[in-house]
Simulated assay, not measured.
Amino acid sequence: MKTILTNKHISIETRKRALQCYIEPVLMYGCEAWTISKQIQDKLEATEMWFLRGMLRIPWTAKKTNERILNETNKRRLLVRTIRKRQATFLGHMMRREKLEHLVTTGKLEGKRSRERQREKITDRLATWLGPGKVTDTLIAVKDRDL
């Protein structure tokens, strides 16, 4: 895809569309199960900018800000927002099914947790997105939706 994405004879809109259709789905494969920390979010945003710089053939050593590149391509940073939306949709599906995934997510599964540092749960990440008091309200509202 590099020859298409860096070809100056193809319009920037067509190249952005190719990036969105062919590259981003591969990049986001399985993102519903990811727990995105600040460090991973920064890497995803850097990857998104790396693709845009490559499309414009701007080396990383050039002193152009990310905002300037976003203005040149008439694009906004949407990768992390799209991943969060897909994760929220997947969380809604899990909460409505009320199977094993629901028990694990809500913490109602009995058993001991390991001694190491605990992994971040989906509900923990949801609390950082929405605020600490709104998680239970959101989980209740998810169940009211029609299947």
Rank of each mutant, 00 (worst) to 15 (best):
H102D: 14
E72P: 11
L78T: 15
R97A: 15
R119D: 00
R77T: 08
K64E: 13
L44T: 00
L79E: 03
K99P: 09
L27I: 10
N74V: 04
T73V: 15
L130K: 05
Q20W: 04
L147I: 13
L147V: 15
R125C: 04
R68W: 06
E67S: 12
W60G: 10
K134H: 14
R86H: 14
P132K: 11
E67G: 13
S114R: 12
L44E: 00
M94N: 15
E67F: 09
E48C: 01
T3M: 09
I40D: 00
H9P: 01
T136A: 12
R97F: 05
L27A: 06
F51D: 04
Q87P: 02
L91C: 04
L70W: 03
K112R: 11
I23D: 04
G111I: 15
R15K: 10
I83P: 00
K43F: 00
L100M: 14
W50T: 07
T35V: 10
S114V: 07
M95V: 13
A62E: 14
R86L: 13
A18Q: 08
L130M: 12
M55F: 07
D137N: 10
E101A: 14
G133P: 01
P59G: 14
I122D: 02
Q87E: 00
E32S: 13
R84D: 01
T123C: 09
R117A: 07
K38H: 01
D42A: 04
E32Y: 02
K121V: 08
I10G: 05
E72V: 03
M95P: 02
T123Y: 02
G107K: 02
I40V: 08
V26E: 07
M94C: 14
Q39H: 05
H9L: 11
R96K: 15
R53K: 09
R53E: 06
S11T: 13
R125G: 00
I69L: 08
R145Y: 10
E98H: 10
K8R: 13
Y29M: 03
V142W: 14
H102M: 08
A88Q: 06
N66W: 05
T14P: 02
M95L: 15
V26P: 03
Y29K: 04
K16V: 11
E32A: 08
K38T: 03
S114K: 09
D144G: 05
D42F: 00
I12D: 12
R81H: 09
E101H: 12
M55V: 12
R17G: 07
G30Q: 07
C31P: 01
A46G: 06
N66S: 08
